[in-house]
């Protein structure tokens, strides 16, 4: 899967959590929690959705790596290329 496709999935799942926002319009390095007003339950829902959709299990210690869209795409790309 390309990084572009991963970014689309990330943005779709963020949109599911914050339906009134436009995740595609926020900067790649912005903290999605701040930009989209996502709380801890919302972020866990995001992580759960990524696990279900991409079969990538993000441990809690790695959550911070997914706070930005760029970070999330890079992380997911790495994990999918080399499953742990």
């Amino acid at each position: 899967m390309t990084k572009g496709a991963l970014q689309k999935i990330v943005e779709e799942e963020l949109k599911n959590i914050a339906p009134e926002t436009s995740p595609a319009d926020i900067g790649s390095d912005e903290d999605v929690r701040e930009a989209l007003d996502i709380d801890s339950m919302g972020f866990l829902t995001f992580i759960t959705a990524l696990h279900r959709r991409l079969n990538v299990d993000v441990p809690e210690k790695d959550y911070a790596k997914l706070f930005t869209k760029r970070g999330a795409v890079e992380y997911l790309s790495r994990k999918r290329a080399k499953p742990s």
Binding site: S40, M41, L44, I47, T48, L50, H51, R52, D57, V58, P59, E60, K61
Partner: peptide, 17 residues
């Protein structure tokens, strides 16, 4: 909580709340 969640998939994890 962190130790408990380590053994769980995201849909089973607990929040501090």
């Amino acid at each position: 909580l962190a130790k408990t969640n380590t053994r769980r998939t995201p849909d089973e994890r607990l929040l501090p709340a």
